[in-house]
């Protein structure tokens, strides 16, 4: 008993040690980011590095809102991210349910086709897609980004993998109880896949939030642009305003972290805690 406790304690120690190491690895760059965001651009890359700027320049944080329409960009990005995430969530969890729990002709073929297309880099079909979107009259509208991002095969793949780990017996029992397939999806699959849903939501949100090339091509009007384009506006042909880039990056980080924190509890609250086992 004693020995076991000791072992437990030492393994705890190990874990804490690792956690400190992890924190150092991830936090140090962000401290640097924060400190750079309070510097003049010319001082960002000077050696030896200054962790605490001599004269912190809080003006960077007011400049970013006036030099470019950052507020508008953040609003646009948030709007796109929310719509895309919602659509992505509904369409892919529907499709994933069929792929994971229903039996029908062409299932495997269709699923393979889905995954295979994830493999083709977007750069390869960017131009045909752009031409097509223009013919639909969708360029220079947020609709283009929504259509582009909301139906990714990735979401289907992710949800399907998680649905697979939900026992088939659950669905069968529900079917016997007279629940429709839609009912099963709503009452059984959804409540049991909170971790998967939060994973998908975070992924989609972050991806849309940080997407650059898509908005770059489809949104050429300033009032439609997104935050990542805004960030790169500080990198111009002849100069790079790294102080401002860092400040804007810090600001851009906040909404995504809020999403993460609000979903965090669901990672540890899935099948296990909803009382359904095996």
């Amino acid at each position: 008993m004693n020995k076991e406790k000791k072992g437990l304690r030492s393994s705890r120690m190990m874990i804490y040690l690792m956690m400190i190491l992890l924190a150092a690895m991830t936090v140090v760059p962000f401290i640097w980011m924060l400190s750079s965001s309070l510097k003049l651009s010319k001082d960002v890359f000077t050696f030896p590095m200054q962790w605490v700027p001599e004269e912190p320049r809080f003006q960077n944080y007011s400049d970013i809102w006036t030099r470019i329409p950052l507020g508008k960009f953040i609003f646009n990005t948030a709007k796109l991210s929310v719509i895309v995430t919602l659509l992505q969530f509904f369409t892919s969890s529907f499709a994933a349910y069929a792929f994971a729990k229903l039996r029908f002709k062409g299932r495997n073929f269709l699923f393979m086709a889905y995954i295979a297309t994830i493999a083709v880099p977007w750069q390869a079909y960017m131009v045909p897609q752009f031409i097509m979107m223009r013919q639909f009259g969708l360029n220079n509208s947020h609709m283009s980004i929504i259509c582009l991002q909301a139906f990714s095969a990735f979401g289907v793949f992710l949800m399907r993998q998680f649905y697979q780990s939900i026992p088939d017996e659950l669905c069968e029992a529900a079917r016997i109880d007279g629940l429709s397939e839609f009912g099963i999806w709503l009452r059984i699959m959804l409540p049991n896949s909170k971790p998967a849903i939060s994973t998908l939501v975070i992924f989609t949100f972050v991806n849309t939030w940080n997407d650059f090339l898509g908005p770059m091509i489809y949104l050429t009007k300033t009032e439609l642009k997104t935050i990542q384009i805004g960030l790169r506006m500080f990198i111009t042909q002849y100069s790079s305003e790294y102080g401002l880039i860092m400040a804007a990056s810090v600001v851009a980080l906040i909404p995504v972290l809020v999403i993460f924190l609000s979903l965090q509890k669901y990672f540890i609250q899935g099948v296990a805690s909803s009382g359904i086992k095996g």
Partner: peptide, 21 residues
């Protein structure tokens, strides 16, 4: 003014024109 960004400007321009912008 239509700002296509400086980093890959000529590529963006070519893409826009090919798409019939």
């Amino acid at each position: 003014m239509v700002d296509l960004g400086s980093a890959d400007y000529m590529t963006m321009l070519s893409t826009q024109l090919s798409g019939g912008a």
